[in-house]
Design a protein around this nucleic acid. Structure first.
Lengths: 228, 228
DNA sequence: CCAAAAGTGTTCTCCATACACCCATGC
DNA sequence: GCATGGGTGTATGGAGAACACTTTTGG
């Protein structure tokens, strides 16, 4: 290594706050098998390797520990308090991720690691400073979902307007007016109305929609700003 | 070290994009005295020590390299491409900072290190991936200045409404209507109108104002949201 | 008295909000 | 035929945008 900097280095990790949605907002936690915090619940994550970027590390750890791949993933913040890990100096880059529970529900629950979805309002005590990371991730989700169309990452590919509205109601923790919501979201022109309707409901079936990413990108280039 | 994780570790650095404002938006760069990129301009920054947080490292490096202290400083993003430093694996946590040029103008320009303010629209070629860091910092500034009252960090403590308007015009790169701007900002109730007026101008002198942080915090608690 | 910027009021349009009823379907 | 949610229209108020003139001061 042709490099004069030879001081001690902190270890570097990534931790992922993975959100899913059903009736409430859920987060994926794994039970730690080793000390420190053996038996506690923690965010999935692990150490960064020398030849991978942080995004790659986050995706790799997520796949290894929870079998999730191909999820929406975004860097959140880097946590660096010197005493945040009792073993050694460990700096952790927090990520937040969104997954479709409709696609991944059973898989994660039956994984070999003990991974489980928890209601974000009924969390166990978390290892390290993971409660702080999760808190920040939740705040980021709440603000970002309002000005970027990331909420669709939490819904099935085909969804009803009611499902979409409920997504915002659950994430933002407040009720929305049905008529105004529909008017607003439809007027954006970023949804593709499908021919299909939902099935298996004991009342009038709702029309299904799909997020039209192409239209969204087109509109964005023309100065459109998504906002709920 | 009672710790089973003994793999190679990336080095960890911080880099700061420091903004100032006069007629245009400025950024503070330092000339590198050592390879790699000897003679190039770069963001101030350096390696993180084992007993300090990233925020502390950023403040320490800023003080060491540019004599700036007590500035508005906020973590931006962590940059981790494996080849971003040709010497070795170095991960860098980017920060963005805002300073009052009115207080710091001469100091930084005459520092022993060769530090200079550059117009963000007339930048030299930057070392490493610092152009990317700076680009992201500028975007963050442009979006954050609209929904958080951080712009005041760039102005003198006492300022005229015109100065405040120009700040937004320069940062957002678009013109604002004078009457509407004044109406809006005054109606927020976060400025304290001073008895003083500006001096040394060859026309009617404008009233001076001060940002009232206490009022802002009070209003925020009541649900107020700053927005330009 | 002139140049230069400070300071102010009104109109119009559009969008967010609030709100109530009919429609389609499964059971 | 009834319960359940799907789906729609309209009136109101408030805020943003557009716009022009008077006032004050220094030179």
């Amino acid at each position: 290594m042709a490099f004069e900097y030879e001081y001690a280095r902190p270890a570097l990790a990534v931790d992922c706050a993975v959100f899913g949605l059903d009736e409430s907002l859920k987060v994926l936690l794994i039970e730690r098998g080793l000390d420190p915090f053996k038996g506690s619940w923690a965010l999935p994550g692990g150490f960064v390797e020398m030849d991978e970027s942080l995004d790659e590390a986050a995706r790799r750890e997520l796949e290894e520990e929870t079998s999730l791949n191909n999820v929406f993933l975004e860097q959140l913040y880097t946590f660096s308090e010197p005493d945040r890990d009792p073993r050694d100096r460990v700096i952790s880059v927090g990520y937040f991720a969104l997954v479709r529970l409709s696609d991944h529900r059973l898989q994660a629950a039956t994984d070999a690691n003990d991974a489980r979805w928890f209601d974000v309002k009924k969390l166990p005590k978390l290892a390290f400073d993971h409660a702080k990371i999760l808190q920040m991730a939740k705040e980021r989700l709440q603000s970002k979902v309002r000005y970027q169309p990331i909420g669709f990452e939490l819904l099935p590919k085909k969804f009803t307007l009611r499902q979409l509205q409920q997504l915002y109601e659950v994430v933002l923790e407040r009720e929305l007016d049905k008529r105004n919501f529909r008017k607003k979201i439809l007027s954006m022109g970023i949804l593709k109305e499908l021919e299909e309707i939902e099935s298996g409901v004991a009342h009038r079936a709702a029309r299904l929609y799909r997020f039209n990413k192409t239209s969204y990108q087109q509109l964005t280039r023309q100065g459109f700003n998504f906002e709920i």
